[in-house]
Design a protein around this nucleic acid. Structure first.
Lengths: 231, 231
DNA sequence: ACCTGAACACCGTTCAAGT
DNA sequence: ACCTGAACACCGTTCAAGT
């Protein structure tokens, strides 16, 4: 009943027994869908239902519900990274820039999990920061191309793009089913603001990546899940 | 142990006994602060701690934690409404328009409660919709003035402004303490997109207020707090 | 080594008993 | 009429026992 330092994920831990690996995958599989639709708040019972496993099994594979959530999130971030890379490499710089932003925003809209993860406390998890660090590089690249081509204003930095992915997503929630596509309208609006024409100087300086303590995947593990309790 | 139809808030229910009224206010007082900082997720214990009341008392005054949250939210919405009205009436239309958006965005940034309330499920609560209906009118007014003065693009509608309040707020959460003011940067960016210069046609039509089923404070009470469970 | 049903702890909510 | 401490139900997590 001693807990080994490594934890149990992708460290140096031995590979899982075949059936266990399959079970773990079944749990993840179920979790993906359920989290995407219901967000991180769903009950453990719901998470397990479609996997055919018991709640106890879930907690054998993942130390906590949050950890399962993060695991799903990490996969999800990889998907986002792929989509973004594809968009960023389109031949026309303006087209690439636009597609990049569309992909980023769309991903946030479709993925309640990622949206939650970047809202508030959860963002402190080193794994989440590490995810975003990867994406940050891609941001720098598309933006630079766009700026050189004169289709993006000069006072932007790569990190801005990352932060802006979330902006249109917030607007959907008001209307959800009524108008699930409104976010595109507001992304268009925002994109008009990102072009050089009619740009007015920004009153607030760009955030520096240095401001994000964890960017670069520094910290070790997740001692981050304490809320501020007590007096 | 029968539950009367009215509920127990501002209906036709008799006024509270003096001490009870004081206690209720103490509960609200404490809740305001705690909710604003910690969001709607805080424990009932935390909510009560500063009020000197027992948990049971809380549930005597408010049918549920959510209801207390909504109560606080309603007050908060009133504050927002006042701020917005003030901004909207500034003499210069361009100035009024800008101030309006700043107030809206700032309120969302400062108020984790309202931000949560407009994210996802909670928005279905009739009381929340009613709140926003009031604000929607103010939106129409400032926007029309701005458009007549040629400082806002013609393809906007009032409801757009309301939806856009939230956009800059989302960006803060990434940086929180590191750069609590970044949202102003992204609001500036957005505002550049709202001006007529350099505006490109929007691919997605404006949402109609009719799309918001509850706008106008139609529905009765809050039978809205069920999640989708079971198979 | 991995799974499970039963147990534990915590928290939102309710109840019986006090004033 | 309103308050409270104790009880209840639910859910995340853990444990003892099985294979």
């Amino acid at each position: 009943v001693r807990r080994v330092s490594g934890g149990g994920t992708a460290d140096g831990t031995r590979p899982l027994r075949a059936d266990a690996a399959r079970n773990r995958e079944a749990l993840l599989e179920a979790a993906r869908d359920v989290f995407a639709v219901h967000g991180s708040g769903v009950g453990a019972a719901q998470l397990v239902r479609d996997s055919g496993m018991s709640k106890a099994a879930l907690f054998r594979h993942f130390r906590t519900k949050q950890e399962l959530f993060l695991e799903v999130l990490a996969e999800d971030a990889r998907t986002l990274g792929d989509r973004l890379a594809l968009a960023a490499d389109l031949p026309d710089p303006a087209e690439a820039f636009r597609a990049f932003m569309v992909q980023g925003a769309e991903h946030m809209v479709e993925n309640r999990g990622l949206l939650e993860a970047t809202s508030g406390q959860m963002f402190d998890a080193p794994r989440v920061r590490a995810m975003l660090a990867t994406v940050a590089d891609a941001c720098d690249r598309v933006l630079e191309r766009a700026q050189r081509a004169g289709v993006a204003r000069e006072d932007l930095v790569g990190l801005d793009l990352l932060l802006l992915f979330k902006a249109p997503a917030g607007t959907v929630m008001y209307l959800e089913d009524a108008a699930p596509q409104v976010w595109r309208r507001y992304l268009d609006l925002l994109l008009d603001g990102l072009r050089p024409e009619g740009a007015r100087p920004l009153g607030t300086p760009a955030p520096s990546p240095a401001g994000l303590p964890g960017l670069g995947a520094t910290t070790h593990d997740d001692e981050f899940w304490h809320r501020n309790e007590e007096t």
